[in-house]
Amino acid sequence: MLIKLIIIALLLFIIINLVRAGLAMLKQDQPNVKMSRFIGWRVVFSALLLLLLFIAQAMGLIEPNPRPY
């Protein structure tokens, strides 16, 4: 159950950083807010999520859906 909460939290962080990057792109009057920083954090969280999914599946913490046929 804990691993699923961590996955959901990482997905939320990814979406939040996507929204923050979009807002930074629209607000061009703030020179100290860099859109690339938010996009970079989004990439880091995505890579961390992918790595966490692979490790959790290898350890048996989560199970993929059975084959459809």
Rank of each mutant, 00 (worst) to 15 (best):
P64V: 12
L51Q: 07
L23R: 08
L26S: 09
L12R: 08
L18Q: 02
W41C: 01
F54R: 05
G40D: 02
P31E: 09
M35H: 12
I62H: 05
I3M: 08
Q30P: 15
Q30E: 14
L5T: 09
L51H: 12
M1L: 04
K34P: 02
S36P: 04
F38R: 02
L5C: 07
N65G: 04
A47P: 07
I39K: 01
R37G: 01
A56L: 05
I6V: 10
A24F: 01
N65P: 07
L26A: 02
V19Y: 00
A9F: 15
I8D: 12
N65S: 03
A58R: 05
A9P: 09
Y69E: 13
R37Q: 07
K27P: 04
L49W: 08
A47R: 04
M59A: 06
A47E: 10
L18I: 15
L26V: 10
L52N: 03
I6F: 12
L49R: 02
L5W: 03
A21T: 05
A21V: 05
L49H: 04
I8S: 10
L50C: 08
L61A: 07
L49S: 04
W41P: 02
L48W: 11
L2Y: 09
K27S: 06
R42M: 13
V43M: 10
L52T: 04
I16C: 04
P68C: 08
I39D: 01
G40V: 01
A24W: 01
P31F: 15
M25G: 05
